[in-house]
Write a protein that binds this DNA or RNA. Structure first.
Length: 830
RNA sequence: GCGAAGGUGGCGGAACUGGUAGACGCGCUGGACUUAGGAUCCAGUGGGGUAACCCAUGGGGGUUCAACUCCCCCCCUUCGCACCA
């Protein structure tokens, strides 16, 4: 056997072998416990990067581990293949987005295969394939039927230079991520999904995920959903039939509401100023605010700006007129886009009132002092006693809250309500490379859904698009010209496509039955595999993707297609791969390409390093020397095996006499079993792969020390065989190629991947003798070697009579002796 | 401002429910083998001190026989959210 292992040859061979034997094909089997291991599928940008390698190595470790533990594992892979970069590439390289995408997929698939990942490639899913996205359209139509998808006019992020709508995440500090133009707010019609209908359940179920999800992801989701309990109140507008609806969490301050603040987008503004002398001025002001960068406009420290629109509403309890203002800090998308301003008890309203000389009315007095509007320097937002609020004067505001709302409700002023920060999800994109929204606009019938039988609405692939400007599909009559499904009149297709987060919201359902041609997936098979037992991916998806897909899952459940409430039981958010203290990025020039690394060290080394360098959820600092170290470890295993293979072949580790081992041999035996215990626990319970690997390293060190040369006695050889086999079994999920190769060379005909995970004998995990630390006043002064589980009294006497201990205790009164069994003795002296 | 996570050798990181701080790896130092070594093997490696010992887990208090671990205050780093009515 060669002194060095040829990883290239070995890895290629084992990858082929797994492929040929269909080792990782997943089939439903109700007799075995299932384990669905999901990793976030990549966007096919061209090449895999270190973040992918880390994500997929962790997923592979867990998949292979649970396979060996006896689980029926589903470990699939696919491609999040729609998205704007394909259009940019088309523009730059003059190739079709589809060509670019599929070329990238082919290349990246080969890269993943070279990592030796245990995917069931038969279940591969590609979102830009009509066989996939037709079911996007189908799901959209089901949502439409149920009123969960609707079209509305709203303000969106608009890039004037690209002439397109941008998603919030594509706006970087107020600028277009592509051309760095200032992003404006523009009113545009678009399709929305009513995720807000599920806000309460999405929030409540965060509690059920607490065991398997990182706390911070749940907190982020809870904050994002942002539940507030309060009331919706109605303020009649003077000299008008209109009323302004307001959401407030502080209905107790209603008697102190002295003016109204409206968001510049608020539709009532236009209505109320129409025909008034100040109409032009007010509209110009609104326009100016809307043109302003929204981040700046609504930033915390931003100056309060506003303008009275010249109309007033009436406070429904005090009957006082409340001038209506436009205010820059009021957000149209939260609550109702209108705020009842209570300057005495809300800091923002206070600042606004001071800036424009508006009246301040105190209605809650603190218990320890008396507020006066003239002397206040900030709003009083704490609890207190209600004043100037006739029916409730003298009562404590918090205690009166419920009665107060009931009163307002009885008066027809408002009602109890809950408001969420979560907004409905706008999915329309004026882009080409995405799923066409299956709607047809007819002059007579309005928006008409494409009949199910006509799905998919196919995205044309071969048109000479100019992707530089507005909505390519809207430039293509061949695409949009159609007839109304209802009345047959000439009609026009929706030319917007879906946000790509739509695609990724249910891909893991599709994996369970990817070949389905009559429905998105087979509910029977989906219910066998779901929920996902372990999801692994980057923290950057903490809100968007993870919230959207939870929402989709609940909708699919309500459609009767799945029967669990939550899609992911456990979530592991892996840290970033960083170099020189910064995230790897082309712009920073600190990118390490996984491919060249695999070429130089092999996949096993790369995988080992990724798992060893840091615990999975923490950022991983890239280290070339660390990779070298991982490589050396694998080489040492190879050399150790090379020395012993001949003398170990043919033995059976399970049928060997181990009784006649010397002390050193027994110690090795104990190390083997303790290592199994530690590694199993570290992987299964603690998700600490770095310490699992360090335990395996310690085992190798022990074996090398025990047998630098081949052993001759049968018992010793049997022990060595047990040690080496255990090493390989434990290493199988980490460095699968090397482990499989040596396993075979040991004479096994069955694949290592099909082998059962080793179990440990509890009897062997404890040693006969242990080292007991003896402290005097908490400082280590001596060490005793005593039999395991020695009697406390015995240990106590041994410690007290120990020579080194007596040096510290002689002449002093022993006040106390603490004995921690099998750990230490602490002698406390005066 | 609010929320979350984290601060341990020269570096990445260990220390499970309070019980030997620094496992494992990298790096470094010395040695062996060698024509050579960036290969491999052996030994050493938190700081101070000749030594006995002393000091060390961001800083300061506290609880305890015993604190990286628990409690209080403060500092720093990273990440979310950020005028949410």
């Amino acid at each position: 056997m060669d002194e060095r292992f040829d990883f290239h040859e070995i890895e290629t061979r084992w990858q082929q072998r797994w492929d040929e034997k269909e080792t990782f094909r997943a089939r439903e089997d109700s007799t075995r416990p299932k384990f669905y291991c999901l990793v976030m599928f990549p966007y096919p940008s061209g090449r895999i990067h270190m973040g992918h390698v880390r994500n997929y190595t962790i997923g592979d470790l867990l998949s292979r581990f649970h396979r060996m533990r006896g689980a029926n594992v589903l470990h699939p892979m696919g491609w999040d293949a729609f998205g704007l970069p394909a259009e940019n590439a088309a523009l730059e390289r003059k190739i079709l987005p589809s060509t670019w995408t599929y070329d990238n997929i082919a290349y990246m698939r080969s890269q993943l295969k070279r990592l030796g990942l245990s995917y069931d490639w038969e279940r591969e899913v590609t979102t830009c394939d009509p066989a996939y996205y037709r079911w996007n359209q189908w799901i959209f139509l089901k949502m439409y039927e149920r009123g969960l998808a609707y079209r509305k006019l709203s303000y969106v992020n608009w890039c004037p230079s690209c002439e397109t709508v941008l998603a919030n995440e594509q706006v970087e500090s107020g600028q277009c991520w592509r051309c760095a133009s200032e992003v404006a707010q523009k009113e545009l019609p678009g399709w929305f999904l009513r995720i807000s209908d599920y806000a309460e359940e999405l929030l409540a179920d965060c509690g059920r995920l607490a065991d398997g999800w990182p706390r911070r992801v749940l907190t982020m989701q809870e904050n994002w959903i942002g539940k507030s309990v309060g009331a919706e109140l109605h303020f009649p507008v003077i000299d008008s039939d209109a009323a302004i609806r307001v959401f407030t969490t502080r209905p107790d301050t209603l008697w102190g509401a002295t003016f109204m603040s409206l968001a510049p987008e608020h539709p009532l503004i236009r209505e109320l100023v129409a025909g008034t002398p100040q109409e032009q001025e007010v509209l110009a002001f609104c326009d100016q605010l809307l043109r302003q960068n929204k981040i700046e406009r609504t930033a915390v420290g931003a100056e309060k700006r506003g303008m009275p629109i010249g109309r007033a509403a009436r406070n429904p309890v005090t009957q006082q007129p409340m001038p209506i203002w436009v205010a820059n800090f009021v957000l149209m998308e939260y609550g109702t886009g209108a705020v009842m301003a209570v300057p005495a008890h809300d800091q923002r309203d206070f600042e606004f009132a001071r800036a424009y000389g508006l009246p301040i009315q105190v209605v809650i007095q603190p218990l320890d002092r008396r507020l006066a509007p003239q002397t206040m320097t900030e709003a009083y937002t704490d609890a207190g006693t209600l004043v100037e609020s006739p029916p409730f004067n003298g009562r404590r505001n918090l205690e009166a809250m419920e009665d107060l709302i009931t009163y307002l409700q009885a008066q027809g002023i408002g009602r109890r309500t809950i408001s969420y920060r979560l907004r409905d999800w706008g999915i329309s994109r004026q882009r080409y490379w995405g799923t066409p929204i299956p709607i047809i606009f007819c002059d007579r019938c309005g928006a008409v859904p494409v009949p199910e039988s006509e799905l998919p609405v196919v995205l044309p692939l071969d048109l000479p698009f100019d992707f530089s400007s507005k909505s390519p599909l809207s430039q293509s009559p061949a695409f949009y010209e159609t007839s109304c499904p209802r009345c047959q009149a000439p009609a026009r297709r929706e030319t917007d496509t879906m946000d790509t987060f739509f695609d990724s919201s249910w891909y893991f359902h599709r994996y369970t039955s990817p070949g389905e041609t009559t429905r998105p997936f087979d509910p029977g098979r989906a219910n066998y595999w779901l929920a996902v037992d372990q999801y692994i991916g980057g923290i950057e998806h903490a809100i968007l993707h993870l919230l959207y897909s939870r929402f989709f899952h609940k909708v699919l459940r309500d459609l009767g297609m799945v029967n669990v409430d939550e899609p992911y039981d456990r979530l592991l958010t892996q840290g970033m791969v960083i170099k020189d203290g910064a995230k790897m990025a082309k712009s920073k020039g600190n990118v390490v390409d996984p491919e060249s690394l695999i070429a130089r060290y092999g996949a096993d080394t790369v995988r080992l390093f990724m798992l060893f360098a840091a615990p999975p959820e923490r950022d991983l600092e890239w280290s070339e020397q660390g990779v070298e170290g991982a490589y050396r470890f694998l080489q040492r295993i190879w050399r150790f095996a090379a020395i012993h293979l001949d003398s170990l072949r043919g033995l059976d580790r399970r049928k060997v006499p181990l009784d006649d081992l010397d002390a050193e041999g027994r110690d090795v035996k104990q190390t083997i079993h303790r290592t199994i215990k530690r590694v199993t626990h570290d992987i299964e319970r603690r998700y600490r792969f770095n310490t699992a690997i360090s335990a395996v390293m310690e085992l190798l060190n022990k074996l090398l020390l025990y047998a630098p040369e081949p052993k001759s006695r049968p018992a010793e050889r049997a022990l060595l065989r047990e040690g080496l086999e255990t090493l390989l079994l434990l290493l199988a999920p980490i460095a699968p190629h090397l482990a499989a190769e040596l396993w075979e060379r040991l004479g096994h005909t069955a694949l290592l991947a099909d082998e059962a995970w080793p179990s440990f004998e509890p009897a062997y995990t404890t040693t006969d003798e242990i080292e007991l630390v003896v402290q005097v006043n908490g400082k280590v002064r001596s060490r005793l070697s005593v039999p395991t589980d020695s009697e406390e009294e015995e240990v106590r006497q041994l410690a007290l009579t120990d020579e080194k201990v007596r040096r510290w205790t002689d002449g002093k009164a022993v006040r106390k002796v603490i004995v921690v069994p099998n750990r230490l003795v602490n002698v406390v002296v005066a």
